[in-house]
Deep mutational scan, measured.
Amino acid sequence: MSGIALSRLAQERKAWRKDHPFGFVAVPTKNPDGTMNLMNWECAIPGKKGTPWEGGLFKLRMLFKDDYPSSPPKCKFEPPLFHPNVYPSGTVCLSILEEDKDWRPAITIKQILLGIQELLNEPNIQDPAQAEAYTIYCQNRVEYEKRVRAQAKKFAPS
C-alpha cells in the first residue's frame, strides 16, 4: 500500500471527524483483525431537504486505489439507486470521479460526498449510466419523482 495514499486518507479521516456536513457519514471499514482499512470507507449521503430525495439516507462505498490521490476513489451505492447517473452496479457516474475528466488530487472526501448529493437531485442527462431511470427522467418527470420519493422512504434511517 502506498504511504502517500494512507497518509492522505488519515488526514481526510481526521478532517472529517473534526468537521463534516450534518447527516453525512464517512467511516473507514475494519479489517478482520480489527485494524482500520483506510482504503475502503462506508459512507452515507442524506437526501437534500426540499427535494424528492429528502428523508432518505443512501449508503455508498468509497474504494481507494494505491495511487490515490492521483486517481479518484470508486464510489458505489449499496444497494444501487434508481438514478440516471448511477450504473446498474451502483457505481456513480460523475465527472469529478473520473481521472480523465474533472478529478483533481486536491478534491476531498467531503467535496465528493457533497457533489454526489447535488447530483442526486440534478442528474447530468449528457452522461446517462442507467437506461430506465434516464428514460423516465426525460419522458415523465412526475413518475420519476414518485419513484425517487418511494426510494427515499425505503432508505429512511430507522
Rank of each mutant, 00 (worst) to 15 (best):
V92Y: 04
A131E: 09
Y137W: 00
G50F: 11
A26L: 08
K76I: 14
P80K: 11
E132T: 08
R149F: 09
P80I: 07
E118F: 15
K110M: 06
A26H: 00
R147P: 03
S89A: 13
K65M: 15
V25T: 07
G56Q: 03
R147K: 13
V92Q: 00
L113S: 10
V86R: 02
P80N: 13
D102Y: 09
I109Q: 05
C138D: 09
D19V: 07
L60G: 08
E99L: 00
L97M: 12
W103P: 00
I136M: 11
L94C: 08
Q117W: 08
S2I: 08
S89G: 14
K59W: 14
L120D: 00
T108A: 15
S89N: 07
S89Q: 15
I45L: 06
W41S: 03
A156C: 10
A150R: 12
L6F: 10
F82G: 04
C138G: 08
P46K: 06
P80Y: 14
V86G: 01
H20L: 03
K154S: 14
E99S: 11
E42H: 07
N37Y: 14
P32L: 14
S95C: 06
I125T: 09
V25A: 10
I136Q: 12
C43G: 11
P79C: 13
R149W: 10
S2A: 08
G34L: 06
K146F: 08
E118V: 12
V92M: 01
D100M: 15
P69W: 06
I125K: 04
I116R: 05
K48N: 10
W53E: 04
L97F: 07
M39F: 13
L113M: 11
T35Y: 02
L94A: 04
A156N: 05
K153R: 13
G55R: 06
G115T: 00
P79K: 14
K49E: 14
D67T: 10
R13P: 02
Q126C: 13
P105A: 14
T91W: 14
I125G: 02
Q126H: 10
W41Y: 03
E42D: 12
T91L: 14
F24Y: 12
F58K: 05
E145M: 11
D100F: 12
P80V: 07
K30S: 11
L113Q: 05
G115W: 00
F155V: 12
F64I: 11
Y144V: 01
A10T: 11
Q130W: 13
P72Y: 00
A133F: 06
E98C: 06
F58L: 05
G56P: 09
L57W: 08
R17Y: 00
T108N: 14
Y137Q: 05
L94H: 00
L57S: 09
I116T: 13
R149N: 09
H20F: 04
L119A: 00
L6G: 10
P79M: 13
T135P: 05
Q151A: 03
N37H: 12
M62N: 02
P128Q: 02
T108E: 14
Y87Q: 05
A131G: 13
S71D: 15
K76V: 13
A44C: 04
S70M: 10
S2W: 02
Q117C: 12
K59H: 14
Q111N: 14
P157C: 10
W16H: 03
A10H: 05
C75F: 15
M1P: 05
M39K: 07
P105N: 01
S158P: 13
P128I: 04
A131H: 10
L63A: 11
I136C: 09
E143W: 08
V27A: 06
K146Y: 12
K153W: 06
R141V: 10
M39D: 08
P73Q: 02
K14D: 04
E42N: 05
C93F: 00
I109C: 06
I96S: 12
W103S: 01
